[in-house]
């Protein structure tokens, strides 16, 4: 039950990421076709692509972090007892989940400052500060997901296995 709830909480943004990705593909296609055949490219297509890209990365980051889908190297793991490995993983996720809050704060600050400058994207005039705010929030959720993973590893490992299993593709 709990596993499903957590899984759902991180899946919702993931589905939005899927939607962003699909939109990006369709947008590129229609932009190219419209430009080639009708001389009418979609205005600001590249800018929308950039925003969708940020959307994909930061909406998917919570799942990537919670389900340990970051690329890492388990080279020495075979020589180390499982109990040590577990505490190592608890530690790594906790430490980096906490450390990430510093760039989150720095990013938030610089986003607010950019909002104050009224800086906008070149073609669609979208406030750049808003995009940066969104990214800071995404990074914050990703950091939280790492801390959550650490806590689950420490206190409810079965729950984490259940979440990992549902994320297997």
């Amino acid at each position: 039950m709990m596993a499903r709830a957590i899984r759902l909480a991180v899946s919702l943004p993931l589905w939005l990421a899927a939607l962003a990705l699909f939109s990006m593909m369709v947008l590129t296609f229609f932009d190219v076709v419209a430009r080639s055949m009708m001389d009418a490219p979609i205005p600001g297509a590249a800018e929308i692509t950039e925003i969708l890209l940020a959307g994909i990365v930061f909406l998917a980051l919570p799942v990537t972090s919670l389900c340990d889908r970051h690329i890492s190297v388990d080279l020495i793991d075979t020589f180390i007892p499982d109990a040590v490995l577990r505490w190592r993983d608890i530690g790594v996720n906790l430490v980096f989940g906490v450390l990430l809050w510093w760039p989150v704060a720095a990013g938030w600050k610089s986003a607010i400052r950019t909002l104050g400058y009224n800086e906008v994207t070149l073609y669609l005039r979208i406030p750049v500060g808003f995009i940066m705010l969104f990214i800071s929030v995404g990074l914050a959720v990703g950091a939280t997901a790492m801390i959550l993973r650490s806590l689950l590893l420490a206190f409810r490992p079965q729950l984490l296995h259940a979440i990992d299993a549902t994320s297997a593709t």
Binding site: T28, A54, F58, P103, A106, G107, S136
Partner: peptide, 23 residues
């Protein structure tokens, strides 16, 4: 250093050229 890194996080994730990666 933190502000530079935060800026790279914000800008790297919306680099038009990198849209080829997910696609």
């Amino acid at each position: 250093s933190l502000s530079l890194s935060a800026r790279l996080v914000a800008d790297g994730a919306r680099d038009y050229g990198l849209s080829v990666v997910p696609l």
